[in-house]
Design a protein around this nucleic acid. Structure first.
Length: 300
DNA sequence: CAGCCGTGGAT
DNA sequence: TATCCAAGGCT
């Protein structure tokens, strides 16, 4: 005897069916892509759009197809290969994760969420994404897209709040019971948020669950809570650090402090940012006081 | 937990 | 031109 599916579960099934027809053909989703390749893609995709990640991911996977391959190269190589994806500390953490995989996991990406979360640069989202997309586990995967879909579809709100533990049960309530469909649901609901239920101008006409969406049924009310503050960039240390790193990425040889002056006029801020880059391990100083991207062991 | 950590395309 | 915001993580 069959029980009537709950309304949320029916919505989840509809989202899985939609994905079968609407999914993008992204390289890290293709058959045969292993968990290491998935992990690299997920770290690169943290706060960086798909279109900018694709070519860099291809380069990385060609150069470093295994954790052991990446673990063997100096930080300077991964910082350069990271290019302009942004947040270059992610590149360092990915290399550190590769080293941890070699040291503690036999050079293999572990399949369990707890072990994944223990890796540098791998948090709640990324650990579950790797377990689900890399190993086919029916894990709830909650990113900014999923939280926005849930906010509208389930709660009738225009925008999601900050990430909370309560997001996981919300997503679980939508997830199909069949394990295979549950895995596809995790990627499907992200895709729905990325392509249809987007932040600025949602394309509700193309939405497979528009008739069940609590937000639309409520008349698509505007966001009522406090507007989430957007981070400034111009003039911040983030910009200055980026400029300094630009100079060092382009330099074949170590450079002196004078070579970094054109990167930013304010000497106080420039110095502070250089210090922070040294602290982060994105820059190192040679014995004679010059600056370069870190060579790690092979620099000595 | 609020603030910080890059970058560039779209609006 | 200014603002938004993009598959988060860390402190």
């Amino acid at each position: 005897m069959t029980s009537t599916p709950s309304a949320p579960a029916a919505a989840g099934e509809a989202i899985v069916d939609w994905y079968a027809t609407a999914a993008r053909d992204l390289p890290w989703r293709r058959p045969g892509v292993d968990a290491w390749a998935v992990l690299v893609s997920e770290v690169m995709l943290q706060q960086t759009p798909v279109a900018r990640v694709e070519p860099v991911w291809r380069d990385w996977m060609a150069r470093w197809p295994t954790p052991a391959a990446l673990a063997a190269v100096p930080p300077a190589d991964v910082i350069r290969a990271w290019g302009k994806l942004g947040y270059p500390r992610r590149a360092l953490r990915l290399r550190e994760a590769a080293i941890a995989l070699v040291d503690r996991h036999g050079g293999v990406v572990p399949p369990d969420v707890a072990a994944l979360e223990a890796l540098p640069g791998v948090g709640t989202y990324t650990a579950r994404a790797v377990a689900c997309f890399g190993y086919g586990q029916p894990q709830p995967v909650v990113d900014t897209n999923v939280r926005r879909v849930v906010a509208r579809l389930v709660h009738g709100r225009a925008e999601a709040g900050n990430a909370r533990a309560a997001d996981l049960p919300d997503v679980a309530s939508l997830t199909p019971p069949d394990p295979g469909r549950a895995v596809r649901f995790s990627v499907a609901v992200m895709e729905l948020g990325a392509l249809v239920c987007v932040a600025r101008s949602p394309r509700c006409a193309a939405c497979p669950v528009r008739d069940r969406c609590a937000w639309r049924l409520a008349g698509a009310p505007a966001h009522d809570g406090p507007a989430r503050r957007v981070q400034r960039f111009t003039g911040t240390d983030r910009q200055v650090r980026g400029r300094l790193l630009d100079v060092l990425r382009a330099a074949d040889e170590p450079v002196d402090a004078a070579a970094l002056e054109p990167a930013w006029d304010d000497a106080v801020q420039r110095s502070r940012c250089l210090d922070s880059l040294l602290t982060d391990g994105l820059v190192e100083q040679t014995p004679d006081g010059l600056f370069r991207l870190p060579l790690g062991d092979q620099g000595t």
